[in-house]
Design a protein around this nucleic acid. Structure first.
Lengths: 317, 317
DNA sequence: CTATAGGATAAGTTAAACTTATGCTTCCAG
DNA sequence: CTGGAAGCATAAGTTTAACTTATCCTATAG
C-alpha cells in the first residue's frame, strides 16, 4: 500500500530541483537511476507525478499533493536527526506544553516564567487548543505535556486510555449548540438521535472526538460519518461560525453563556445531564521522561496545589 | 546524513508493535531481516534506539524522538495516499485557509459560509496565525491560501519571494516592545543594535522572521542567534508573556496601544519609521490551482472589492 | 544544420536486502 | 531441576533490485 520510502526521498529531490539530472547530482547517483526510480514510484502510486515537457518537468496535482506530504517530514528530519542522540545533564532545551486558551492567557506563561527563573536553559513552545487535539499531539510526540479537558460522567472519575498518565485539576461543562436560525430551520424541537445525525457540524481541528463523546454521553450510540463542514483552531471563531448558522458544534458552556442568555445560541438538551470535563495534567505513561520533563512536572504539581487558581476553580467535595 | 528511509518504515513498525517478530509478520519479511535493518539504522544514526531486555524492546529517548518524527508522517501517508490520484470536476473537498486572528473572528467564517452556499461540497480548515508562519505553511503545502501580513517599506510596494502570487488589501504597523520592568532593567534607554542583540525574545511559533525583519528595517543588519526563550501560537498569550518581563517581542501596534498608553508596555523606537505590513491574499505562484482553489480565489477577490471591510480599513491614496 | 542538454530505454553489474540455519538467553510449566 | 518456548542476534549463502554504462530520442539555440 505504501510506496518505497527511498523513492519518496528521490521524489523530494526531483521536485525541489525540478530536474532529474540535478537530483542525480545531489544524490550522487546516475541520471538513469533517478529516472527509473521516479517511474517506479509513479507505477506504485498509479498516477503520474510530473508532466514531461522537453527538458522540463511540470508537477501534476498529484505530484504537488505528494510533495506537500513529504517535504515537511524530510525538512524536519534534516533539522532534528543531528540532535537525536544528545543527552541532557540538567533541565535544558525545549519543553512543548499545550493548554486550553484561557489557561494560556493568564496562567501558563506565568508558570513557565517562574520555571525559567529556576532553570534559565529551558525554553518553551506553547500550544493553545482544545484537549482532544492536545492528547493527539501528546500521543504523536508533538507535545511533551498538556493541560487538557477530558470527559467523564458525573459521579465517576475520568478514565483515560492506558497510554496516559494523569492528575485531575479543574472542572468544566460541554454542550452542543447552534444558532437560533439554524435551530428553527433544522432542529425545531426535534432533539432525536436520528435528526441530529443528518445535520452539519463545526469542530475544533479535524478530530471530532468531542462530538462523538457528546453523542455517546446523550444517546449511548456512536455517531458515524457526521457531516463536518468546517474545522477551526480557534474556539472564538468556532462560536462565530456557529452564530452564522453553518451547523452545530460542541462548546464550553461558560464561553457561550452570554449568547444563550441573549437567545443567539440554542443549546441542544436531552434527558441526560451535561458532559463534564476535568482539566488534567497529561503525559505519555510509557515514555521515559527526560530530566527537564520530570523537573517541570514536579514543579507544576507543586505549583498548582498552592495557587489562587485552585482556590478559584476547585469545588468542595 | 539522512538514514535509509525504508529502515524508518521498519523502525515505525517495530516501535508500534514493540516486537521484531511482530514487525516481521506485519511486513511479510523474516525476523532476521528486521533485526538486521534495525541494527543498520542504529549504525547510521550512531545511537541505540531500543534497549534489549530479554524478549523485550524498551525504546530509548532517541528512539522516542525518532518515532515522534516518523509516526505523524507515516500515519498521514497512509491516510492520504489512497486519494492522491483523484481528480475533481466541481468545487469540492477541503480548502485550507489561513488568516490573522481578528480576521478569523469576524470575517473569514462569513466568507466561507457564503462560498458554501454556492458550493455545498466544499469544506474548510481555517488557521489563525501571524503571516510569516502562514507563508511557511503555504510553501509547505499545509495551506492552500492565506490572508497574510507582509512587511514593506513605507512609500514602496510590498515585495515577495518569487514563489508567491499576491494581491495587497489592508495595512497595519508592527513594533518591538517589552514590559516597563524589563525595559528599566535591560534596556534603560539603550536602543542600540549591540544591546538589543543580547536580550531575550518571545516570538510567534518558532519562526523569528518578524524579528529579523524588524532588525533589518531599523539597523540594516541581520540579527543572528537571537535568544528566543518562548514561542507561542497566540498573540494574546505573547502579549501576556511580554508583560511578565520575559523579554522583547514584535507586536501589532493596534493590539498593544492601550498597554502603551498605560505605561505597562514600552515600544523600542529608533530613528526609523515603523514597519508597515500589508494584508494580502497569497498563494504559491507555480502551483497549478485546483478548480476549488481557483473558484475560491475569484470569489474572494470579487467579495473583498465590495465589502464594508474595504471601506473600513482602506486609506485613500 | 549541428551541437547541446535533459529525459528514457536496454542490458549487464553490483550491492544489499533477504533467506535459512543456528545460537543465545531468560522464563515458565511440569 | 529440566526441557520447551519464544524472541532477538549472528553467520553464511541466495536472490532481488538498485545502479551502472551505453545509447537513443527530441527540442532548442546558435
Amino acid at each position: 500500500m505504501l510506496p518505497d520510502f527511498n523513492r519518496l526521498k528521490v521524489f523530494y529531490h526531483i521536485y525541489s530541483l525540478n530536474s532529474i539530472v540535478a537530483a542525480a547530482n545531489e544524490l550522487h547517483l546516475s541520471q538513469p537511476a533517478i529516472s527509473q526510480q521516479l517511474q517506479k514510484l509513479e507505477g506504485e502510486l498509479k498516477v503520474p507525478l510530473f508532466t514531461r515537457l522537453h527538458k522540463k518537468l511540470v508537477p501534476t496535482a498529484a505530484g504537488e499533493r505528494l510533495f506537500s506530504l513529504v517535504e515537511p517530514f524530510i525538512e524536519k528530519l534534516q533539522d532534528e536527526i543531528p540532535y537525536i542522540r544528545q543527552p541532557l545533564d540538567r533541565p535544558a532545551g525545549m519543553l512543548r506544553i499545550g493548554a486550553p486558551r484561557e489557561f494560556g492567557k493568564e496562567y501558563l506563561p506565568r508558570f513557565c516564567h517562574e520555571f525559567r527563573l529556576l532553570y534559565p536553559d529551558v525554553m518553551f513552545k506553547l500550544k493553545f487548543k482544545e484537549s482532544i487535539p492536545l492528547l493527539t499531539m501528546i500521543r504523536e510526540g508533538i507535545l511533551d505535556y498538556a493541560l487538557v479537558d477530558v470527559y467523564f460522567k458525573q459521579g465517576e472519575l475520568p478514565s483515560f486510555s492506558d497510554i496516559f498518565s494523569v492528575a485531575p485539576l479543574l472542572k468544566e461543562e460541554m454542550i452542543l449548540v447552534c444558532s437560533q436560525d439554524y435551530y428553527q430551520q433544522n432542529i425545531a424541537g426535534d432533539h432525536s438521535f436520528k435528526n441530529l445525525l443528518s445535520k452539519e457540524y463545526i469542530t475544533d481541528e479535524d478530530d471530532p472526538s468531542t462530538l462523538s463523546l457528546w453523542f455517546k454521553h446523550n444517546f449511548h450510540k456512536t455517531a458515524e460519518n457526521l457531516n463536518i463542514v468546517m474545522t477551526l483552531d480557534s474556539h472564538e471563531a468556532l462560536i462565530s461560525a456557529l452564530k452564522l448558522g453553518m451547523g452545530l458544534g460542541v462548546a464550553t458552556a461558560h464561553l457561550v453563556w452570554e449568547e444563550i442568555q441573549r437567545g443567539e445560541v440554542v443549546p441542544i438538551t436531552t434527558l441526560r445531564t451535561n458532559m463534564v470535563n476535568m482539566i488534567s495534567l497529561v503525559q505519555l505513561q510509557d515514555k521515559v521522561p527526560t530530566l527537564t520533563e520530570k523537573t517541570f512536572r514536579d514543579f507544576m504539581i507543586a505549583r498548582m496545589q498552592k495557587t489562587e487558581i485552585l482556590k478559584r476553580f476547585q469545588y468542595t467535595e
